[in-house]
């Protein structure tokens, strides 16, 4: 059996202690920006049993069918960003809707054969939940809009 010397054990313990301190500090006072020492907060927020669950999406107009809004996947494969990343920047998008134009550009790079997007809007769908059960009622609101023209 291979044993470790005093020095080898000491630095290993020091590394383990440092990791423990960082992970615990991240969980106690840290935020997502501390990654990999950010708090492990998957599904950690509370959702009221009665209220609304919101889900954000994008709708676009294409050069093929101007004037007609169609839903487009808000996925990295389609626009370079995913839904949560856009949801986290709603304030910035509302302040400066021209940001949405960058999604159309990324889409053109990622999907060069698809029809060009001429307009894009961010839509929030509020799904009404009463006593933990969706009622089927869905409210839609437009948060920001960008137009290529």
């Amino acid at each position: 059996m291979d044993r470790l010397g005093r020095v080898a054990k000491t630095w290993r313990i020091a590394v383990l202690l440092a990791l423990t301190v960082m992970f615990c500090a991240g969980s106690l006072v840290g935020n997502d920006h501390w990654w990999p020492f950010s708090p492990w907060r998957m599904f950690s927020t509370s959702q009221a049993a009665t209220g609304s669950v919101w889900s954000t999406g994008i709708e676009v107009q294409t050069a093929d069918a101007p004037g007609e809004w169609v839903r487009a996947p808000l996925t990295p494969e389609n626009v370079g960003l995913n839904r949560a990343e856009v949801e986290g920047r709603i304030t910035q998008i509302e302040a400066d809707p021209s940001r949405l134009g960058t999604l159309a550009r990324s889409h053109a790079e990622l999907r060069p054969t698809a029809a060009e997007w001429t307009a894009l809007r961010v839509v929030r769908r509020l799904i009404v939940v009463v006593d933990r059960k969706p009622t089927g009622e869905v409210r839609t609101e437009v948060l920001a809009q960008w137009d290529a023209r």
Binding site: R41, S44, A49
Partner: peptide, 27 residues
């Protein structure tokens, strides 16, 4: 273990009675 702590920190002790999983399934 620390993700249970995060639930308490961000969701409060009432997290267990919230509709978080309903939200996850709806979304």
């Amino acid at each position: 273990f620390l993700s249970s702590w995060a639930k308490v920190r961000f969701g409060g002790w009432d997290w267990v009675n919230s509709a978080t999983m309903v939200r996850a399934v709806v979304r």
